[in-house]
Design a protein around this nucleic acid. Sequence first.
DNA 1: GTTCCTTCTGTAAACGTTTACAATACCTTT
DNA 2: AAAGGTATTGTAAACGTTTACAGAAGGAAC
Lengths: 333, 333
Amino acid sequence: MTLQNRVTIKDIAKATQLSVATVSRILHKKGQHSSVTVKRVTETANKMGYVRNTSAADLVNQKSRIVAVIVSNTKSNFSEHIIDAIESKAASDDLNVFILHAGNRDEQSQLKAIKTVIERAVMGIILVSLELDDNVLTTLNSTSIPSICLSTSVKDTAIPFVTSDNYQMGYAATQLMIDKGHTKIAIAGIPTAGSINQRIAGYLQCMSDHHLRVEPDWIQYGTCTYDDGEKTWQVYAKKREITCAICASDLTAIGMLNAITEMGLKVPDDISLVSFDGTDIVDMVRPRITSISQSFYEMGLAGIKFLTDGRTIQKQYLPFKIVERESTRRLEK
Amino acid sequence: MTLQNRVTIKDIAKATQLSVATVSRILHKKGQHSSVTVKRVTETANKMGYVRNTSAADLVNQKSRIVAVIVSNTKSNFSEHIIDAIESKAASDDLNVFILHAGNRDEQSQLKAIKTVIERAVMGIILVSLELDDNVLTTLNSTSIPSICLSTSVKDTAIPFVTSDNYQMGYAATQLMIDKGHTKIAIAGIPTAGSINQRIAGYLQCMSDHHLRVEPDWIQYGTCTYDDGEKTWQVYAKKREITCAICASDLTAIGMLNAITEMGLKVPDDISLVSFDGTDIVDMVRPRITSISQSFYEMGLAGIKFLTDGRTIQKQYLPFKIVERESTRRLEK
DNA sequence: GTTCCTTCTGTAAACGTTTACAATACCTTT
DNA sequence: AAAGGTATTGTAAACGTTTACAGAAGGAAC
């Protein structure tokens, strides 16, 4: 059987001696029909192996029951929690979820993904962990398809977002370590641009609020990867000033942990480590990593609810939790 | 602007005083047209913010340029390598990749995902790490859309697959440890059903080939999770017979590693650990986990190539590599 | 017997695109 | 001047579905 001769409602109409209208109505439970006809139609549909041609249906309906989730393809491990939430709510609303990948700062691949889904008249677009430039934002605004950003904020007022407050998280991580007696605190692996960069602003503000000096070397940029952690430690190791590093992601913290251990030093005895995210992996390494844990599941839920239950939120910051584990210690003077 | 009045080629035709046919041809670079007309059309298309209605196009073309990847939603971390490969080849062939999730042994969610994509006339379906029951197989066979299974084998001869030879991997893992002097070798976390279960057959055969006894307790089933590793160690710890455990996945090995450490024992001094998969994470924990590493990227590549470059493969077993790291030691008698 | 419901089914247009075929205009060749 | 070719554009049908509207058949009320 080729695609060309898939069974259509026309075939079923012919087989049952009915009109296509009747068949269509019965197959979608619209209008009223005698029970014998209903039975006859559904049975022949099954027997003939009918599958709906969604392209045709979408064409006349001008919409589809698909939610598109476009996810950054950079190796971050938190998006699965967001997706989990989206899929579970979508399933109960009988929606389908299509996941696409795009480069975090790659305009071309973002545009391609967005074009692909708006061409198909999806009912909504959820953008996860993507920093969008102006070009992408105008494309998004030029369509009437609702979209929302998760885990990034966006200046454009037309696009709502749900994320954690990166500034506050940066501040909280710093405050936590200051409370534990640290004064020489570094921050590692944060990207130079995008809303996530606000973590550095929070860090700087907190340090300044406590009249603590910040050496330029202490701020090391990156892309939240494992490698960033390993490499940044090589920089920190040169002077051996710092007693604590705040890491851009769980993976960055683990990379640094391993680099530190490699050098014969110990976490948290010699260096304390805090990470952002707080995914499962922080409990898999030893010592377990103290983290600023984000509410990823709630983030996904907020995103899909925005698309299904009406469009109220415009900007929303979700709470984060400070979870102390084994990678941080109190510094005795 | 609502979806209802999106710009169509009809609108462009009106604006440019041309026929829809000409507009359509120019927008898809078919046929020849005067350069001025081409310019006029493309410019107005841009100006008016035209986006193609793929539903309409798919409807007449009877196909789409979409590859559907249906992935098991169980927490396994190797699928990203498979998807990476699929996406990179798809990008160079100008195809779009839609990823859907389905339960590993959940017939309903599998059927739903498959129905969703065949209704949209995708050009191919790649099933990753999914054990398919008969119902799903018949649905797959009833359509003319080509499909292929990755990381699982399937009895049905109509559906091709690419995977690692689980029997041989089970045998190889066991042989490795026997070569290192171990005789009391356990195997943990393997599912009771599905092709992956063949790892146990390989293990048993290897033990038997070396005239080694296997206690029933040594074989502990599971679902390749981190928790399986933790829990299974509680079982093994009761008798403290074994000197080595072969773990169903990297995560299972790490779970066991942590449980072992928790008890004050050491890997590999007290217990050696081997895992299947060999994803990035085996190098992130200490000690690094010795693994039977599968060729996931090549698996993804083989899957997408099957769909694009012609359909030659029917069944293919990809090579695996034994990578010794720090979680295994030679046992001196 | 007329009118009015109700219940069921059919007719036909519409969705936006693609493409085979026809048509036109203009240019070359004879 | 006729014939043939080429370059460009238009006409119209087709894809499979949905749905407003019309129609038919039967029953109930007067």
